[in-house]
């Protein structure tokens, strides 16, 4: 709030009203409703529902399929986060270093940001096509009978590769801007203090980039959890079958295909809790960021 605030009463209320109304109708009402219905069991024929307490949750946590999906989600998130961050960091460090063509490289490395996840998934289908896909042939060279949509590991691999590809631009943009905000003189001081370029990177540049990296860690986990929906949906070509899926996809399948309202709501609530934990974690890190400046 500003020191020189205006004292008007009705204007700010009028200004806030549209946002508050939209949030109330499309955020708080649905979120509360999800919380509530996670304690009810929906009649399969649509005749009302019964209060079942925490049963939806307990059956969820006892469900082997759910556990398997949760485990896949963890592995998927870790792989996507690690590889997209590592590749993007390498590219950002190089792009920050070169003088010639720096702008062209930046454009070429970031433009994929604008491609929608399901479109990226569709490109994945072309590359992992069972009979003609170049990447399918690549994996077959190593004796892996790669069958997208049929073989669990093949589908999972394709999902990770496409998800990493789609996320590199965001990480690249943030790493590059992080690198560029390190004062030139600090790097020059390091050049006088340390002759090894590798040493300088790990002892000076990387620690100064750590706040950006922590921040991106959260962004990437959130991405892997939620924004990969389109990629996953495209790559399994609408047939869940035996295919790997993430927790969010499971919410969608159970809620819209299986009509298991209570179970799906309970899953939503579990995800909400997960996001809350991530956010608290993020705020802790944000506090740490401030210490450097």
């Amino acid at each position: 709030m500003k020191r020189a605030g205006f004292d008007n009463i009705w204007l700010p209320v009028a200004l806030l009203l549209p946002q508050l109304m939209i949030i109330a109708i499309f955020f708080y009402w649905p979120a509360g409703w999800a919380l509530q219905s996670s304690f009810f069991l929906q009649d399969p024929f649509g005749f009302g529902s019964t209060y079942v307490g925490a049963e939806n949750y307990t059956s969820l946590l006892g469900n082997d399929q759910y556990k398997r999906i949760a485990w896949f989600t963890v592995v998927f998130s870790v792989l996507v986060t690690f590889f997209s961050l590592a590749i993007a960091l390498l590219l950002a460090v190089k792009a920050d270093k070169v003088l010639r063509g720096a702008r062209t490289y930046r454009t070429l490395l970031m433009w994929v940001y604008a491609i929608a996840p399901p479109v990226a998934g569709f490109l994945g289908i072309l590359f992992f096509d069972q009979s003609t896909g170049p990447l399918t042939k690549f994996f077959q060279m190593f004796g892996w009978d790669f069958k997208l949509g049929v073989d669990y590991n093949a589908t999972a691999t394709a999902m990770v590769i496409v998800a990493v590809w789609k996320q590199i631009p965001v990480n690249f943009i943030f790493f590059l801007s992080g690198l560029q905000s390190i004062p030139r003189s600090v790097r020059e001081a390091a050049m006088i203090d340390n002759r090894s370029a590798t040493g300088r990177f790990w002892q000076v540049t990387f620690p100064l980039l750590a706040p950006t990296a922590f921040f991106l860690l959260i962004i990437n986990i959130t991405y892997a959890l939620f924004d990969t929906f389109g990629i996953i949906d495209a790559l399994m070509k609408g047939e869940p079958g035996n295919n790997p899926m993430t927790l969010v996809y499971k919410v969608y399948i159970d809620g819209f295909r299986g009509n298991d309202l209570g179970g799906s709501s309970a899953q939503s609530v579990v995800l909400m809790a997960l996001v809350l934990i991530l956010t608290v974690f993020q705020f802790r890190l944000l506090e740490r960021r401030i210490h450097y400046t």
């Binding site: 004062p183 600090v186 020059e188 001081a189 000076v204 100064l208 400046t293």
Partner: peptide
């Protein structure tokens, strides 16, 4: 080069 340099904005390592 066996030199030491003091920069305008000091260039201290913030971490």
């Amino acid at each position: 080069r066996d030199i030491a340099m003091v920069f305008q904005n000091y260039a201290l390592y913030p971490h």
